[in-house]
Design a protein around this nucleic acid. Structure first.
Lengths: 201, 201
DNA sequence: TGCAGCTATGACTGGGTGGTCACATGCGGA
DNA sequence: TCCGCATGTGACCACCCAGTCATAGCTGCA
């Protein structure tokens, strides 16, 4: 959590610090990112930064939270619009894609976050993942009850697959992954590799 | 490529350098791994290392190659034993799992490799991925011709999914992923989420 | 005017890194 | 015995980093 001093700052100065920090954490992992470079690019003194934040990690977590709050504005639409699980999933990833196009730097920040291994970040990430797994499997059980989803599959395994593929998709938004490719990938998960008896797709 | 000097070394000394390097590169990414620590743990002088290798990257690539040569001994069985694509894939990941259990350090080295971003490693990794994609889609087209695989799916998308899930599986061998969970995950990819008309599994 | 308290500063500390080089050592052959 | 060459060495260089602290400046109140 930033110190009060940071929030007392005139808006423009505060914003410029945020922007430079976003730039640095978008291009580098937490460990490789350089506080020294951030303060140089802001034109403020090193010591000032420590008037605003406890340490590098404090700044980082603040920036990550900023990024996720922006992203939330996009992806939450997926859970508001009704529909079954396939539509929700498609909408979720589609909104993520839009977010990545409209806020490329913030998108990179959220992305790098999951690769962090420094300090206690590993545990934090683990907890976040577990929370997501609970959410996901709840949705999934619902869909199974509705007869939409193959009941023979292990929910944990399904989450594992979606988590892995979701991360890979998001990693490559804007590079290899566009809207059409996104649909193709989701179809693979939906229909599975094995040829189907009835209509294949 | 190591210098000739390295191969002139008595076997025990060469091996001890390899082992310490494997240890360091198993626990750290290329960038975080410390040459200084490797030479300290070996009990040799910093300068000696530069008699054997051009630089840190040279040593790293040599170690990665060592790891992959060992891994190849395992996974190539998947392509030797006949069977269609689902059996091949299952055997491939099962052999990877065995490799990770029998050579945990080498396994971690191969794993970290894909996360490297330093220097020209990014391009190398890109090329390796492209080569894998070609191999995979060739197998896939074969399977489609045999009527085993859903012909409506985009081969590039299928590769994308398997690559992502494969990496996640291998990342977590020994932690979350055991033999039973591996089967469950592969079933998700095989059958897809959507409920099937006939026998579900 | 003077004091109090918040804010700004940047030189400095202690620690890390990859890589170098002048020198030392050991060994095989003449 | 002595030379020449391959090998070994570790102090040293230049560079980077996060974090500190004594000092200075500012602002508003009494």
């Amino acid at each position: 959590m930033p110190k009060q001093t940071f929030f007392n700052l005139p808006f423009a100065k505060r914003r410029s610090i945020e922007e430079e920090a976003i730039r640095e954490f978008a291009e580098n992992t937490f460990e490789r990112a350089s506080l020294t470079k951030i303060v140089e690019n802001c034109g403020i003194a090193k010591g000032s930064m420590y008037q605003y934040f406890e340490d590098k990690l404090d700044l980082y977590l603040y920036i990550v939270e900023l990024a996720y709050e922006e992203k939330k504005k996009y992806v939450q639409r997926a859970f508001e619009t009704p529909g079954h699980i396939f539509e929700t999933l498609e909408e979720y990833y589609r909104q993520s894609l839009i977010f990545s196009l409209e806020h490329p730097a913030l998108h990179k920040v959220t992305n790098n976050f999951w690769d962090s291994r420094a300090g206690h970040l590993g545990e934090t990430i683990h907890r976040l993942r577990a929370a997501r797994a609970l959410d996901f499997t709840a949705h999934l059980r619902n869909a199974v009850d509705q007869g939409v989803v193959n009941p023979a599959l292990d929910p944990e395994a399904v989450f594992f697959v979606y988590h892995a593929v979701g991360k890979a998709l998001i990693d490559q938004f804007g590079e290899k992954v566009d809207s059409a490719f996104l649909s193709q990938v989701l179809d693979v998960l939906k229909y599975g590799l094995k040829a189907r008896k009835g209509a294949a797709l």
